[in-house]
């Protein structure tokens, strides 16, 4: 059956429909990639309106706790061969909000990310490079983020609940911490 999956992966790589979750400041980089100067449609990648129709979920910036809940819900609404692209340094290590009380640091902890694109808002060339890279990974059958999610579902859910469903204060010894000054 492997030739069949090979053929299918070939086609999947050539036609990827993208749902971009425009949070943070990354969304402004997408119009140039779509329009005439860089034109990502050459690679068969077109933006789609709903998670049902999309293959790629593009997270374009920092994720506050509130937006994280919606991203997870949208991710779960997408169907089987789906990939996640972390966009910009905010998804890798929290970026400039690394020590903020409200912004998560690493997207990988909550939903499986196939490719991170470094850069405090990467330029369209970097985005296209990521897309081509993703195409090759899909065609070689390496981009299996969605299976990773299914296999380690409890672990992912635990991480998500740790952030979303807090039951007790995070900072334990309040008085020790507030001793400054």
């Amino acid at each position: 059956m492997s030739e069949w999956t090979e053929i299918v992966d070939y086609f999947r790589g050539r036609s990827m429909w993208m749902l971009h979750y425009c949070t943070g400041c990354g969304a402004i980089e997408l119009p140039p990639t779509m329009t005439s100067r860089w034109d990502m449609e050459r690679f068969g990648i077109t933006p789609m309106a709903t998670p049902r129709q999309a293959d790629i979920l593009l997270i374009t910036g920092y994720l506050a706790i509130k937006t994280l809940k919606r991203v997870v819900y949208t991710y779960e609404q997408m169907q089987a061969p789906k990939w996640v692209l972390g966009f910009g340094s905010c998804t890798i290590n929290g970026g400039i909000y690394w020590d903020s009380y409200n912004v998560i640091e690493r997207l990988d902890k909550y939903i499986p990310v196939d490719i991170y694109i470094a850069g405090c808002m990467p330029r369209p060339e970097a985005i296209l490079d990521a897309f081509v890279k993703l195409k090759e990974m899909v065609q070689k059958g390496e981009a299996k983020g969605y299976e990773k999610y299914v296999k380690n579902y409890e672990w992912y859910k635990a991480n998500q609940d740790k952030v979303l469903k807090r039951t007790s204060p995070v900072l334990k010894e309040i008085e020790k911490v507030t001793k400054i000054g």
Binding site: W98, V103, I104, V163, V170, L171
Partner: peptide
């Protein structure tokens, strides 16, 4: 401290 406690990977 809060961020390390909650979000540290």
């Amino acid at each position: 401290a809060f961020s390390e406690e909650l979000f540290e990977f």
